[in-house]
């Protein structure tokens, strides 16, 4: 049976925890706003680029471009995982890591050789303990570096893909649907696929476009840009998702701490009352004995 002092100490300690979790929640809420803002303001660029690319691809007909062509035999597969550096954000990183592991296993079962490239400390540690090389792992990436990093990564990927280092590249990241919902997503980034379906009706006079230089050269210039935007987008969504997940997790933790405190307080008060009653009985029975 816990003594009153024990309960008092526990209440104090849970209160401390609650203070920390509620502070973390507040910090995440502020960071989330910034992160969603930058994810949202990056969207016009991506949308316009995607639209234009579809139009060009649709207009140019069946185009052959190295970055668009699927290899007949897929042997080497590159998987890029994007997680956060820090934990305490619920299942945000864990879920993605486990799904990615399944994804890797699936590819291995098909006889593919899988190499990994991780972003964020959480995926680095996870895949390091599973025997993957973390030579190319990147951690401590902040928003100001996203643009440069995605450009550098796109360049490396393009070069490696063309050199035949890998035949397919996938990116795994948490898609930021809403504050409460982040979806682990796997997208194939190389070879690129452009859905030309639906492009025709929203373009109108697409056939009348004048391309300078030719459509094919233009496509060659647009595709690397598109790849870069895809990567940038996954960085931005991961950042926003991390803060959202942390906010939700910390909100839950704060609520649990409050519940625990009220339960403990109840127990404490009951114990105190029992002690008082006991003392009274002792006094009364002592007086009676006289």
């Amino acid at each position: 049976m816990a003594t009153l002092r024990d309960i008092r100490t526990r209440i104090a300690s849970v209160k401390n925890t609650r203070q920390i979790t509620s502070a973390m929640k507040m910090v995440s809420a502020a960071k989330l706003r910034r992160a969603t803002e930058s994810a949202t303001s990056a969207r016009p660029y991506q949308q316009t680029l995607t639209q234009t690319l579809r139009r060009v691809a649709a207009g140019a007909g069946e185009v052959e471009h190295p970055l668009l062509t699927s290899r007949d035999v897929v042997k080497n597969v590159l998987v890029i995982v994007v997680t956060s550096d820090r934990g305490l954000c619920g299942g945000f990183n864990g879920t993605l890591n486990r799904r990615t592991e399944d994804f890797v296993k699936k590819h291995r079962a098909e006889g593919h050789v899988v190499t990994m490239r991780t972003y964020g400390r959480k995926s680095k540690d996870f895949f390091k303990s599973r025997g993957f090389s973390t030579a190319t792992a990147r951690t401590d990436l902040v928003r100001a570096m996203f643009a440069d990093e995605s450009a550098a990564l796109a360049a490396t990927l393009t070069a490696d893909f063309e050199a035949g280092v890998f035949d397919e590249a996938w990116i795994a990241f948490n898609q930021f649907k809403s504050t409460l919902n982040q979806i682990p997503t796997f997208n194939r980034v190389l070879p690129l696929s452009i859905e030309t379906a639906g492009a025709v009706e929203n373009t109108g006079p697409s056939a009348d476009y004048v391309y300078e230089p030719s459509g094919e050269t233009l496509l060659g210039a647009l595709l690397p840009m598109y790849l870069r935007t895809l990567l940038l987008q996954s960085f931005l969504e991961t950042e926003a998702g991390e803060q959202a997940a942390r906010m939700t997790a910390m909100d839950n933790a704060t609520r649990n701490a409050s519940d625990l405190i009220s339960a403990l307080t109840l127990e404490y008060n009951r114990g105190r009352q029992a002690a008082i009653t006991k003392e009274l009985i002792e006094i009364v029975s002592g007086a009676e004995a006289l």
């Binding site: 004048v210 300078e212 210039a221």
Partner: peptide, 19 residues
């Protein structure tokens, strides 16, 4: 500044795409 030289666009320009 287009890749093939500087260009100007006035209203009612023909649909045009360039690097």
């Amino acid at each position: 500044p287009g890749e093939l030289g500087e260009f100007g666009v006035l209203p009612r320009h023909i649909p045009f795409l360039t690097v």
